[in-house]
């Protein structure tokens, strides 16, 4: 800024340039900062965030049955798997999986599979909870929206969904009660 201040009449010019520049930068930065509260106001609010937990009585669920419960407004699939289903899920070579994860890493007790029932593609609810619904080629769940197939461990096997059905944080309070969240 100073190097072109060759004549006395150009001196005020460069000072003015400097003032314009700094004033502009500060105004710009200030405006950007002032925008943040507006943007952030659209993020989940405290009441939405308040980590709600859901307690589920799983005693009525028979082997081979599934129930759907709501946790944080999302459906959670709880399936009491048959011995056969568990075995298939455990034997599956990880190399065959688009999103490799062993069954053991996805359950606390192998009999109970707990996953968030939201397709990881574009958010539809996969079918397969009711006996009347299709379960897809891997006998887990099938998402009708764009055809994603999930296996008995809730892992993606075929279709556009990129990842496995996520396992929520949960614990067994006792043998028949599950606490999700």
């Amino acid at each position: 800024m100073t190097d072109h201040a060759s004549g006395p009449d150009e001196q005020p010019e460069s000072r003015r340039d400097f003032l314009y520049l700094t004033a502009g930068l500060f105004t710009g930065a200030g405006a950007a900062l002032a925008l943040w509260p507006f943007i952030h106001s659209m993020n989940p609010s405290a009441d939405v965030l308040a980590l709600s937990t859901t307690e589920v009585d799983i005693s009525p669920v028979e082997v081979g049955q599934s129930i759907t419960v709501i946790w944080q407004k999302k459906p959670v699939f709880i399936r009491r798997r048959t011995a056969e289903e568990i075995e298939v899920a455990e034997q599956e070579p990880l190399a065959d999986l688009p999103d490799p994860e062993s069954d053991a890493d996805r359950v606390i007790k192998p009999e109970w599979l707990v996953v968030v029932g939201v397709c990881t593609h574009l958010g539809c609810i996969p079918l397969g909870q009711k006996p009347s619904e299709v379960r897809g080629e891997w006998d887990g769940w099938f998402c009708p929206c764009h055809g994603s197939h999930y296996d008995t461990s809730g892992r993606i096997r075929k279709g556009p969904a990129p990842t496995n059905l996520p396992v929520p944080k949960y614990e067994f309070v006792d043998d028949t009660t599950l606490l999700i969240g």
Partner: peptide, 17 residues
Amino acid sequence: VTWLWGGFVVDNPTLNR
């Protein structure tokens, strides 16, 4: 997506905005 929704699913905050 969470920001667009104002939550973890499409819900009341989404409808409002």
